[in-house]
Design a protein around this nucleic acid. Structure first.
Length: 646
RNA sequence: GCCGGCGUAGCUCAAUCGGCAGAGCGACGCAUUCGUAAUGCGUAGGUCAGCGGUUCAAUUCCGCUCGCCGGCUCCA
């Protein structure tokens, strides 16, 4: 007779086998109501699963991440059943859960429209109302293949054929049967709050040479309130979109005349220059020497580097005096030429060259996205030439550098991926393994969590990629560290060792921001356009209460922008408008400080300070404000110092 | 590049079942001289993305091209 052990260590004795649902009910009606699945001896199972022997049991509720995931997975099945009812000719592919919801891929003769989604949702409601139970059974692989083949479910057949297990599991609710590992919610009626969001084409198995399917994205939550909150967050994200803020704050623009080639405006360039100054200072501190290499170089160089064979599709070409040239898609070959200009001693190494290099890549038109994905961009690149025994220390140094910029200075959350050998790679497996291990050791030495991104390395070496999130939670690769044994070989790079003989150095390619363009896009969304003072295009705007106070406003502007006090960026709203109007404009423009000046301020030689977030801070002397702002800028503070006092 | 959607004033969006295109915000002008998120009145602003076709007539219907948006693939 089963003895059930619960997560808190308590035990219950039953004199006959019980289903997990019965056990949950036994504990309490509230738990039974929230239960969606059960974990038995570490394995997730359906609630109707019967426990016959002693077991450790944990009831999984809808309030837990796992429970929500199960709910969404079941929602995907319910959506599939709805599609089957409305479009009997459909073939089913896969329907997994994702970060904030689920999707299902369908092969249908005609693409779904957004009106179709409304109908499918309505059909799902019916299925929920009809409250079908989810049940499952196991089947021989061959029997399952036969069954799906009869039904013409080619995609399912392919999936089963690729499975290693001898048995597969099928799930049914209502008239819909699907290949599925489970578990599922007990019945369709348990799905309360869901919404279908959008349709998109998606290649079968993510392979662009295979058929394009129709993917419907949706999401589901335990409660309607949570769903509403999620939908509200999606709407809010639109406001943070860097493409919208870029226009509203007049930072940059894109034009039909140059798709993927962004134009930066004066305010955008202030942001850019602030990042660039920071970048330069940090590189000098860390022993990098800055170089600049040309945008167009002879094609022979690109043949030697391997780009011609491995990267040509992404490159632009041109002719100069009847000679073939390529516009650089990467900075490395240029950097290598600088290295090769003379002989190097082991004493020179590690030699670190950094370069804010402008590269051009022919990205597919459908992938362009504001500043995040462009066709010309500035990499804050660097190439480190070193001896093999310097690898570990140098890579760890770069990891520290990236962590300093992302986490310490900007408080950005990031994820690390280790990208391994791609299909289209230079060099043999042995060298790749060596390089990949070196990167793995370095990241593990730093104790940072990472994921493996199989086959996504550069053609010349594996890489550690640092991903940042945009306002919708989409991640973009920014920083990257790439270890390269190939270029030194191809370009016959050498250094003279202690033994007086020539040796082959190793190269690291790395970027911190990644691309200035993309990084600025990330920052715009991260700060929702309200930049910390050190990055803000305008740090303070003076608002005269009336025209009579314009002279005083100008005097303050002069004092604040006076040399020797850190180049503060200040302007006056000279327009003939009421104070409230100008304040509003300042808020909309997301300017950190507004300085209201009128009769009182002239009398006391002060400014009335208003912060965009803290509101009216009262009056202070000009020198006091100047010190406050200069300090905030100099320290790169993300929040105003006064925030803690308020 | 692929699938789907979209393209009207600087921005956000109406309208025309084929018959000379409209609002709010913004810009500009005048009045107002104002104390912490929108003062009032007025004026200008559009080859209805581009090209071609159908038609007496096309912003509207059809085709192509370009661009944008959401995905897929790809990537900093």
């Amino acid at each position: 007779m089963p003895v059930i052990t619960f997560p808190d260590g308590t035990q219950k004795h039953y004199d006959s086998p019980k289903s997990a649902m019965q056990i949950a009910e036994d504990i309490g009606p509230r738990l039974a109501k929230a239960a969606v699945a059960v974990e038995i001896d570490g394995e997730l199972k359906d609630l109707n699963c019967v426990v016959e022997n002693d077991a450790a049991i944990r009831i999984v509720t809808i309030d837990e991440p796992e429970g929500l995931d199960i709910l969404r997975h079941s929602a995907a099945h319910i959506m599939a059943e709805a599609v089957q009812r409305l479009y009997p000719e459909v073939k089913f592919a896969i329907g997994p859960t994702i970060e904030n919801g689920f999707y299902y891929d369908f092969d249908v003769p005609k693409a779904f429209s957004s009106e179709d989604l409304v109908e499918i949702e309505a059909e799902m409601q019916k299925i929920i109302q009809e409250n079908y139970e989810f049940s499952h059974w196991d089947l021989d692989k061959s029997a399952a293949i036969a069954e799906f083949r009869t039904k013409g479910e080619d995609y399912k057949v392919e999936l089963i054929e690729d499975m290693e297990d001898e048995h597969v599991r099928l799930y049914r609710q209502g008239d819909f049967v699907d290949l599925c590992r489970g578990p599922h919610i007990p019945s369709t009626g348990r799905l309360k709050a869901f919404k279908l969001l959008n349709v998109a084409g998606a290649y079968w198995r993510g392979d662009s040479s295979r058929p394009m399917l129709q993917r419907i994205y949706g999401t589901a939550f335990a409660k309607q309130k949570e769903l509403d909150e999620h939908l509200h967050r999606l709407e809010e994200a639109v406001r943070r979109d860097h493409r919208r803020l870029g226009r509203e704050l007049d930072l940059f623009s894109l034009h039909d005349e140059g798709p993927g080639f962004p134009f930066f405006h004066p305010h955008g360039m202030i942001l850019w220059a602030a990042l660039e100054d920071f970048w330069r200072k940090e590189h000098r501190r860390r022993g990098y020497g800055e170089i600049k290499t040309p945008i167009a170089l002879n094609e022979t160089l690109w043949r030697q580097s391997g780009h011609w064979d491995h990267y040509r599709e992404n490159m632009y070409f041109t002719n100069i005096d009847d000679n073939a040239y390529a516009i650089k898609p990467m900075n490395c070959p240029g950097s290598v030429l600088v290295y090769k200009r003379r002989m190097h001693s082991y004493r020179d190494l590690p030699l670190r060259y950094c370069e804010l290099g402008l590269v051009h890549r022919h990205e597919l038109s459908g992938t362009l996205h504001g500043l995040m994905r462009v066709r010309s961009f500035h990499q804050d690149d660097a190439h480190i030439f070193m001896t093999p025994d310097q690898i570990q220390e140098e890579i760890e140094g770069v990891i520290d550098f990236i962590d300093y910029v992302y986490r310490d200075v900007l408080k950005l959350k990031y994820q690390v991926e280790l990208s391994t050998k791609p299909d289209n790679a230079l060099g043999d497996d042995e060298i790749w393994e060596l390089a990949t291990d070196a990167l793995r050791q370095a990241i593990e030495a730093k104790g940072l969590p990472y994921e493996i991104n199989e086959g996504d390395g550069a053609f010349y070496g594996p890489k550690l990629d640092f991903h940042l999130e945009d306002s919708l939670g989409r991640t973009w690769q920014c920083g990257t560290i790439q270890l390269d044994f190939m270029f030194p070989e191809r370009f016959e790079l050498t250094y003279v060792g202690e033994d007086g003989k020539e040796h082959r150095p190793v190269m690291v390619h790395r970027v911190i921001f990644g691309a200035l363009e993309r990084f600025i896009g990330i920052l715009i969304e991260h700060f929702a356009g309200a930049f910390p003072a050190w990055l803000a295009p305008v740090q303070a705007r003076i608002i005269p209460v009336g025209e009579r106070f314009m002279d005083y406003a100008e005097k303050i502007e002069q004092e604040l922008t006076e040399k020797g006090y850190g180049d503060l960026r200040v302007e006056i709203d000279t327009r003939d408008e009421k104070v409230g109007y100008k304040i509003r404009q300042g808020q909309v423009d997301k300017i950190p400080y507004m300085l209201v000046v009128g009769e009182k301020e002239i009398a006391n030689d002060t400014v009335a300070v208003r912060h965009r977030k803290l509101g009216d801070l009262g009056s202070m002397s000009i020198s006091c404000f100047k010190a406050l702002l200069a300090n905030e800028v100099q320290s790169k503070a993300l929040e105003p110092e006064l925030a803690s006092e308020k």
